[in-house]
Design a protein around this nucleic acid. Sequence first.
DNA 1: ACGAAGCCCTGCAAGC
DNA 2: TGCTTGCAGGGCTTCG
Length: 271
Amino acid sequence: MPELPEVETTLRGISASILNTKIIQVNIRNPNLRWPIPNQLPQSLKQQHFTRIRRRAKYLLLSTTYGTLIIHLGMSGSLRIVPHNTPYDKHDHFELCFANNRALRLKDPRRFGAVLWTKDNIGKHHLLAHLGPEPLSPEFNADYLFQLSRSRKVNIKQFIMDSKVVVGIGNIYANEALFASGINPKRAAGRISRARYELLCQNARKILKEAIRQGGTTLRDFTGGDGKPGYFKQELQVYGRKNQPCIQCGHALKEIRLNNRSTVYCIHCQK
DNA sequence: ACGAAGCCCTGCAAGC
DNA sequence: TGCTTGCAGGGCTTCG
């Protein structure tokens, strides 16, 4: 389940193999992702090459001279670099073959992911136009969160998982950042002090950076573009640790459902 | 404007 | 053993 560190790890894993290398074949094996893969994609990409590959939120943006390929991994998606003619897995839905005998493959069992194409300025694309700041950018800071949250009644966990507030903080890292900051996930966003937002910003940044450094969190079968697993899972303090002792105080961690998302926290340490 | 709920989908695990 | 059920959850979309 890719969150920002997993997407960043994927970006780093695939870039060197495909940047500035000619695309010689585009294979759409199953176009039925979240939105259909555009059927004119092969003619848009064939004989072209990616001049720039970057990430915005959890979207991977692969640009040619003429437009940008937008890839989202959804819940279960992964990208891998494989040699040409590697046998397909059941859920390999999309493939770009390059002149260097490498192929970029999208595997996505649940098909929540997306592969789209745009010729427009990427910042104006409807999926990206209204996104909040990147959590690792200076725009994501205590003043920003404090101002934005005034009079908001929504709970803090949902608030920081809202991509209009800040991008890239999914369920796992929301749980972790709130634990590290001693904030109860149920607390209304509008009733948190500036000082506590400062703590939350610092912790969110620290946790995301560390997860990126370790290659993301491997749950089930996530692997980076090089096929190596992430190692962050062993660092998780609350997520997936229901009923286990709190690392701070030893109290059994509690699991609740908040906005239909699994939420694990310590009632003793998080107020 | 805000907040809550619905929906897309398959694999896996728990329960009967 | 084999079935059913529930959960995983990103994020757009719809409804109140």
